[in-house]
Write a protein that binds this DNA or RNA. Structure first.
Lengths: 197, 197
DNA sequence: CCGTAAATGTTAGTCACTAACATTTCAATC
DNA sequence: GATTGAAATGTTAGTGACTAACATTTACGG
């Protein structure tokens, strides 16, 4: 059955069913094609044909072409972690501390699919823009959290935007390197955001 | 005569000529329509028709619809100012100091067109994404500058992305308020990025 | 075997954007 | 003042992402 989560993404409640299989097949075919000939030179029609499916069916599984690569399931973890930080900190420091705490609770991405996606995004300007757009929802959550605890709205927004952009930059950087743990890259990024490097 | 600048933008070397007039007319018509009925519900064909011109002509003046709202002519000033900062600072601090110095050399936007554009962008998610994409060029310049002076590439990229995202957030914030000078908003944002607020 | 709903297919459209080629405008020169 | 050449605009025909409305197939429980 088709379920729309709070980020606007579409998730299959029954990953083993027919719908889940078609979705996975489309994703696999798409990533292969993107890696072989680039994101922009790959058409949705081509992806659908490779998966043995209609273009219309593609759009029933992915709201847009870029959703094959960009998604963001981490929002609630981040928001909760930021909320748990001391309210006396300045917005930037608090956002950084919150993200540092949040990251400890996230799993190191084991599947290569994550890395493939990020790698493709890193090489494709419009996809990097899509990631920024995607960060907007998380940013709003962060801002609300900071403001609810007395931060100046302007400062809160600046801090949230800066921290998320920094983390995103680190993520893109990580995808280009081999043998480095995502945790380490993110940790270093948070150090930088605290002015410690 | 048509000139392409280093940011990929198209500039008229003779603003008083026919080409310059058509461009200004298209821009005016577009901003009016955007404010009246929203960016996304306004088609390029509609803009062109309002300006008494063909759709094709529109694309000869603006490479894409979003270029009516998004542009970034400040890169060289920023890069030069960052280069002038002491090389002993941490990347984030240096980027902030550079931007603070750069901003002092920029004119307070006198034309209302700037504010109209930013206001429209603030209200339109895809345009906010376009601004981020547009920041990429500036970010690269910043990174090159920081790395050339011995900063770690990873830290440099994180710092550059964070600072630009913070400034952009401040700019969007400014467009929503009345009676506040852009300089003050940006200055406050830089304070936040330094962890001072 | 049957009925039903989920999943997919079909068709026809809109909108942003491109390419190739034809036409008009304008200004300098003759 | 007519001529010419380039800049500016027009025309036509297309591609690709995406949507809407409706038809058909697939799978699964009774």
């Amino acid at each position: 059955m088709l379920v729309t989560n709070i980020y606007g993404g579409v998730v299959d409640s029954e990953p083993g069913g027919r719908r889940g299989r078609t979705r996975m097949l489309l994703l696999e075919c798409a990533l292969d094609l993107f890696e072989r000939q680039g994101y922009e030179r790959t058409t949705v029609g081509q992806i659908a044909a490779t998966a043995g499916v209609t273009e219309m069916t593609f759009f029933r599984h992915f709201a847009a072409k870029d959703r094959l690569v960009v998604e963001d399931p981490y929002d609630p973890v981040i928001a909760g972690a930021v909320a748990a930080q001391p309210r006396t900190m300045a917005p930037l420091a608090r956002a950084v501390a919150g993200l540092r705490a949040a990251w400890g609770r996230l799993p190191e991405p084991e599947s290569t699919t994550v890395r493939r996606r990020v790698r493709i995004a890193a090489a494709t300007p419009p996809l990097r823009a899509a990631i920024s757009a995607n960060n907007a929802a998380t940013e709003q959550i962060l801002v609300d959290q900071l403001v609810a605890d007395g931060a100046d709205p302007g400062s809160a927004r600046v801090a949230a935007a800066a921290v998320l952009a920094g983390i995103t930059a680190a993520l893109l950087d990580w995808s280009q390197r081999d043998g480095v743990a995502l945790t380490d890259v993110v940790s270093a990024a948070l150090d930088t955001l605290e002015g410690r490097r």
